[in-house]
Design a protein around this nucleic acid. Sequence first.
DNA 1: CTTACTTTGTTAAAATAACTAACAAATCCA
DNA 2: TGGATTTGTTAGTTATTTTAACAAAGTAAG
Lengths: 389, 389
Amino acid sequence: MIGRGKTGNAKFVKQMNREGILHQLRQEPRLSRAELAVKTKLSRPCVSALVEEMIHEGLIREVGTGESRGGRRPILLEYNVQAYAVVGAVFEGSELEMAVADMKGELIAQMHTRLKQPVDGESALQALEETLARLLDMSGTDRGRVIGIGVGLPGITQRRSGTVSHAPSTGWMDLPVGREIEERLQLPVVLDNDVNMMTQGEFFGGAGSGVSSLVYMYVGTGIGAGIILDKQLYRGSKEASGEIGYMRIGDSPGRRKGEFGVFEKNFSVNGIHGKAKALGLEVDAETSILRQLIQLSEEGSSQAEGLLNDVYHGWASGIANTVSVLDPEMLVLSGEMVHLNEDGLNRIRELLLDWVPVMPEIRLAALRERAGLMGAVHSVLEAHSYASR
Amino acid sequence: MIGRGKTGNAKFVKQMNREGILHQLRQEPRLSRAELAVKTKLSRPCVSALVEEMIHEGLIREVGTGESRGGRRPILLEYNVQAYAVVGAVFEGSELEMAVADMKGELIAQMHTRLKQPVDGESALQALEETLARLLDMSGTDRGRVIGIGVGLPGITQRRSGTVSHAPSTGWMDLPVGREIEERLQLPVVLDNDVNMMTQGEFFGGAGSGVSSLVYMYVGTGIGAGIILDKQLYRGSKEASGEIGYMRIGDSPGRRKGEFGVFEKNFSVNGIHGKAKALGLEVDAETSILRQLIQLSEEGSSQAEGLLNDVYHGWASGIANTVSVLDPEMLVLSGEMVHLNEDGLNRIRELLLDWVPVMPEIRLAALRERAGLMGAVHSVLEAHSYASR
DNA sequence: CTTACTTTGTTAAAATAACTAACAAATCCA
DNA sequence: TGGATTTGTTAGTTATTTTAACAAAGTAAG
């Protein structure tokens, strides 16, 4: 959609054209002014003027000359990824993962901090502040060149007000977290829940880079999904899209209250653990439940095999329902699902082929633990390219 | 998204600003130049110039003066909805519904044509051509002022190539239908499947006018949904979004092939009919199955009551799954579902409250049979406002 | 080695469309 | 009746892009 309802003036156009040049340079480095003029459909003088401006601002650099193509040799230009820096942070239980990245989203320095229990708002803020200082020091990044920080928090976040309405493990409840961090760190903050951050991570720098729509399905303590449509994160009208743990999949014996989250109850890590224990299987809580089931199944346990099939069937059902609604280009499986082996993946693919008319490409998450951090970083980059209009 | 990757020049800005003025005028008629300047954030001279241009082109009209607000009385402007006209057409079985509308999407003249059986491409084209001529004549619309025709077809349509890949009832299979109609009628064509058209109809001129996201759920021979997110129809990566008939809801006794479309098989009109017959209930195929079940249930049939509850449960499950994924602002129930009474609606709402964390507003379709036609008309209006950029 | 031709990048002038400032027209209110 | 206010227009300024022309720096052929 091209600015529906908005009106623009010359400055707006200029900003757009600068953005267009940067966009080209970001996705294909080492272009000449002449090439940029062709690609952006702007005149060469115009490109020259805009480029000169951006060289002055440090956004673009000249990096030598290229080969002649029958005439004067071109001066190659490059997007200066070190012009500014972005910070990403992810809270996970009592741990804080944090990193500094360049404008391309490449991590320059990374740190892991354990918060002191019990976690409250103040201690979390303090950890953020201290870790940020250390990271900037480590990476030799000037604080003034940081354009913002992306923060991933567990639970549902109400992004607009920057208020976290449900973030159980961090001890932040109904606080204007966004503003608080903003004031403390004196940096623009982009806040989002952990699944959305991981989704953006896989989308921009992981399994889903290049596609235009993607569902990131996460199985952990609960089950949730992040959704990207038309290259944009889709959050839903009340920030509750992708809450697929509430889908009605699997047995739901009790017919009334307490049915909340049937899919999640049956097929999250906890749910599978419960079923395994009910079957009398010996499983521990430390290692992947899926791996244990596969192992037991290979050792000949028919009970484990049955449960494994049940899990495949349940997960496939969740995928089928989601895919039926959204028809995404790609599906990225994450959390416990990354422990699927070829056999399990094929089993799920077979079921889907029987159930739904169109199949997305299905991949395991590529970034694993780094997904959230990458997403936090990229969410700032995204927000920034919007802001500069 | 504001034209990412695109670059613009002055003409582009002008077009945008004209569009902005028209946009304001469309959603609030009778505005003065001064008011437009405030609303569009353009200067008054600029608005004056653009308005004069558009008055010349017939897009805008001056319609008297308004009340003074302490100074010179404003000259009121109105979007000239009769400047151009659009045509909508919907094929449904062997019938063709067609209408001419003004630029506001208000129907000026409407016609119903029965096609001669068996329906093939040629007879359908001919019917289109003849009905169009009659409609233009009836409404006194000059053919040169028609900006396009929207055509709704059953089945999945591949819009990009204008090819219908699956449109069983019209006899059009894998034909470049869009281009064919375009050549025959000498008009720009917007082609889409029937559910998408009905969705747009309810969105622009029905139950969902004003919301920014909406799911239009249709229960008929099959079950499908149209999806609008961020005020835009979402089609999916392979034009297969909203194929919720394939969701895994209800019993699926056979475990292998033939499970295709479990939800649809159980809870479409046909599915419910099958169940009713299996229970030995006396129902006919002509009147609404839901109404018959309600009637029988009220007359004391416990079997009908049981089936009715089963249907509510099934539909609610489908809604729950869809809502869990999308979190839409509104849900519009259509097709057989419009025969839901207060009791049935409440029953479904209660189930949902138990199952999902956030509830959309739920409404019955407001346009009924006219939805497709309204959608066809509005799809052209939409396409047109894009084209003029 | 010279000349003709290409490609790149810059300069200068023209074109477009927005904005500001100033003013005329029309109305209200004291 | 005169001052204040709102609307709409006119004239001139500004910002940005485009076109046309040219200088710079190369290739290639004789």
